[in-house]
Design a protein around this nucleic acid. Structure first.
Length: 421
RNA sequence: GCGGGCGUAGCCAAGUGGUUAAGGCACCGGAUUGUGAUUCCGGCAUUCGGGGGUUCAAGUCCCCUCGUCCGCCCCA
């Protein structure tokens, strides 16, 4: 029979790894809470139109990476490839924006049909922040600061914040034609990929990894030079704010993000330790999106953080051992085994972590497992104890020393445990 | 979607066309039926990701396919 296994690009998180993920999630939750940001949860499945309208028909994400299918009612459905469009849809649908600006965070799986490689899966997980209804440059700074502080608190090292301004739609249109003109004059020197993009998505050529193309782009006109005075001073207020907060950044005039909805501030937080997929967190301002999806004109800024990539960075620093139970319960005989079941539950109810041996094997075997489990104590309940209404507590670190074991009532045991810890 | 590396047990692996596919870790049983370490003994791949082919003979060579890893495109 064919072995059953997970689909390509869909990965299991095993017990060894989940403690790290739990730490990431609880740290993130704490940071959001402190900044008065509320959680929102939206479905993983949405109508395809949401993404084609929101993210942009011409983007790779929409053009070739979506998990799209027809449901039984002949509706085109798509597993969300990112979180922003859904959050905006939900905010519009439920009229959240009429209650004033919204600070929202989300977390969950996203799906993109791509070839898996280091730091890239078909189902991956993001934590994201969306600030809807905020136009002040300080909101850009606040959003970035939350991401930066969260990563710092987790202990991620070697991160860099890269920053650019894409300006307003007008700025970008003006720059686009200037860039296309400049590049067209040098068309022959461009790599084939970039020649292709000259029509479809010229700004993306700035991102090219081809060294010859990069070398040539060093001379090209930059977007920052092309910004209107307004856009420029707005961007200056963002960078001033970051300096005030002591968040280091580097300007990257070639940082262009892949989704159509971005404008003004765009940023990425990257690590050199991730191989080709270096971006841990990416985001920016998307002032036009809410309106484009049928909502009121609403400025907004947000980001998303890739949990797999973050976990790769943190896994290097910490090997997370599975936490051992405090007490390992060993039992034998009909009466003993039943009493053990009760006592284990009783101890759990008052907060102790208990692992109950359910094998019914010889005491020797059970002790061996108790030892290996890493538990501090073994609680031994055989028929002798059951008959007398006692349990035997053994300190597994005491070896053969006198006083390593004591017969106690459950009441005495509780007293003993509270003193010991 | 394109390019390259790699698939031998739960994990790490040896194996370079020739009898029954090393070894280690983990796990299970016993020596030891109410006490853990160590040690010792035994068990744990009718078969090398799957299918086809070449050959007297294939884990080993060839083709296809699936998976995985790395890179490209793109992105978190």
């Amino acid at each position: 029979m064919e072995k059953l296994q997970s689909l390509r690009g869909m990965v299991d998180l095993l017990p060894q790894q989940t403690p790290l993920w739990q730490r990431i999630e609880s740290t993130a939750r704490r940071h959001f809470q402190r900044a008065a940001i509320s959680e929102i949860r939206t479905p993983v499945l949405e109508s395809t139109e949401l993404f084609s309208r929101g993210i942009g028909e011409a983007t790779d994400v929409v053009g070739k990476e979506m998990y799209t299918f027809m449901d039984r009612g002949d509706r085109s459905c798509t597993l969300r490839p990112e979180g922003t469009a859904s959050v905006v849809r939900a905010a519009i649908q439920h009229g959240l924006l009429s209650q004033g600006p919204q600070r929202l965070w989300y977390s969950g799986p996203m799906f993109r049909y791509e070839r898996p490689q280091a730091g890239r899966q078909r189902q991956f997980h993001q934590i994201g922040l969306e600030m809807l209804g905020f136009s002040d440059p300080r909101s850009d700074v606040e959003a970035i600061a939350v991401a930066w502080d969260l990563l710092a608190d987790l202990g991620v090292e070697g991160l860099a914040l890269e920053l650019n301004s894409l300006g307003s739609g007008d700025d970008r249109a003006r720059y686009r034609s200037k860039l296309v003109g400049w590049l067209t004059e040098r068309r022959e020197q461009l790599d084939p990929d970039s020649q292709e993009r000259l029509q479809r998505n010229p700004l993306r050529i700035l991102d090219s990894k081809i060294p010859a193309t990069q070398a040539m782009l060093a001379e090209a006109p930059t977007l920052i030079e092309e910004l209107s005075d307004e856009s420029r001073s707005r961007f200056a207020r963002v960078t001033d704010g970051l300096r005030l907060l002591g968040i280091p950044y580097t300007l990257n005039p070639r940082l262009v993000r892949g989704l159509d909805y971005y404008s003004h501030t765009a940023f990425e937080i990257t690590s050199t330790q991730l191989g080709a997929q270096a971006t841990v967190c990416g985001g920016g301002r998307y002032d036009g999106l809410v309106e484009q999806l049928g909502g009121p004109v609403t400025p907004a800024i947000g980001w998303a953080l890739g949990l797999e990539r973050l976990a790769i960075l943190l896994a290097k620093a910490e090997a997370a051992p599975i936490e051992a139970a405090q007490i390992y319960v060993v039992s034998r005989g009909d009466r003993g085994e039943l009493l053990a079941l009760q006592v284990a539950r009783q101890l759990r109810q008052v907060g102790y972590t208990i692992e109950l041996d359910l094998t019914g094997a010889a005491f020797g075997k059970q002790f061996k497992r108790a030892d290996r489990s890493g538990a501090r104590w073994a609680l031994v309940i055989g028929d002798d104890e059951a008959r007398e209404g006692l349990v035997l507590m053994r300190d597994l670190r005491a070896g053969q020393a006198a006083g390593a074991e004591e017969r106690l009532t459950v009441q005495q045991l509780l007293v003993h445990l509270s003193q010991a810890s």
